[in-house]
Write a protein that binds this DNA or RNA. Structure first.
Length: 298
DNA sequence: CTAGGATCCTGTCAGC
DNA sequence: TGCTGACAGGATCCTA
């Protein structure tokens, strides 16, 4: 599930590929996941690739933005067809095609392995660069946002943990809430970009039980937790993200962070701190929490 | 402010 | 082998 490190990995890869490329054509296969007026982005040059929390933002010359949220199983894949003259993308079944001539009749699929039944949109860019948006569970979305249009979710996002989150602010944030600390970490309006995997890893790192109420943390524990949050996020980025479920980078390659999990998905295994404890799994509001029975006491 | 439930969706897996 | 049902999970919306 793409969280901050996964989306950042994708952003880093996309930036040099997409910037200065022009959007020539867009095929929408499943329109339920694409919001906004596709015509507005046609012929536009991509000026930047940014990330805010778990959201990827492409800025365009005309001030429009393309927002992508991958949620659980979303993927963004890039194919450069420059060296493969014969390669063409054909979509089977109904789809809407914007730009580069009129829509042709239903065509046989012949193209790249990246195109699957879970491909919902394809962006055809200049220099034969193709950007695929795939999502098995269809939880994700692509939104085309006007220059002055507000995006509620984006406006409400909390600070970026690796950029503008300091110890004092985090202590206050945590200690004024009665909610379980695990959910404070995952609340995007409090801190942006942390999901289930990194929340579990950060709490293990800080030796804090996921069910502890925020107000019961000492200042020392809170600042230790912040350090751990930064540490596990940086570790995630270093290993190219965690391919726990469907996550792959823009080349279709898996990340390696899952090989370095300390608690996530380690139920009934021994604690890697060799404290003698075993990793437990509980359900918190329908989310799996993993923690060590010995070093994360309530 | 907070908790809890339903919702969206489909691959996977357990059970029969 | 094949069917059925439970389950996972980010964010939103609704109720209490």
């Amino acid at each position: 599930m793409p969280e901050l490190p996964e989306v950042e990995t994708i952003r880093t890869q996309l930036e040099p590929i997409l910037v200065d490329k022009k959007i020539i054509r867009v095929d929408i296969i499943h329109s339920q996941m694409v919001y906004g007026q596709v015509e507005k982005i046609l012929g536009q040059t991509i000026t930047g690739v940014f990330r805010r929390g778990k959201i990827l933002i492409l800025t365009l010359r005309n001030g429009y933005r393309l927002l992508v949220h991958l949620k659980m199983t979303g993927q963004l894949l890039v194919k450069n067809a420059a060296n493969r003259k014969k390669e063409q993308v054909f979509v089977t079944g109904s789809h809407v095609r914007y730009g580069a001539g009129s829509a042709k009749k239903s065509q046989a699929y012949k193209g790249s392995i990246l195109l699957s039944k879970h491909t919902h949109a394809i962006f055809f860019l200049s220099r034969r660069t193709h950007l695929y948006y795939n999502d098995v569970r269809k939880f994700g979305w692509v939104k085309i946002i006007g220059p002055k249009e507000l995006v509620p979710f984006l406006e409400k996002l909390g600070p970026e943990p690796l950029v503008d989150l300091d110890a004092i602010f985090f202590q206050k944030l945590v200690r004024q809430s009665k909610r379980a600390i695990k959910f404070l970490l995952m609340d995007q309006t409090k801190v942006a970009g942390i999901g289930n995997i990194y929340a579990n890893e950060a709490l293990f790192c800080a030796k804090i039980h996921p069910q502890v109420s925020g107000e019961n943390l000492t200042r020392q524990e809170a600042s230790r937790l912040l350090k751990c949050v930064k540490q596990v996020l940086r570790k995630g980025i270093k290993y190219g993200g965690a391919s726990q479920s469907d996550y792959v980078d823009t080349k279709g390659e898996k990340g390696r962070m899952q090989e370095h999990f300390m608690v996530y998905d380690r139920e009934r295994k021994l604690c890697l701190r060799h404290c003698g404890g075993t990793i437990c799994r509980i359900s918190q509001l329908g989310r799996s929490s993993f923690f060590c029975s010995m070093c994360q006491k309530k």
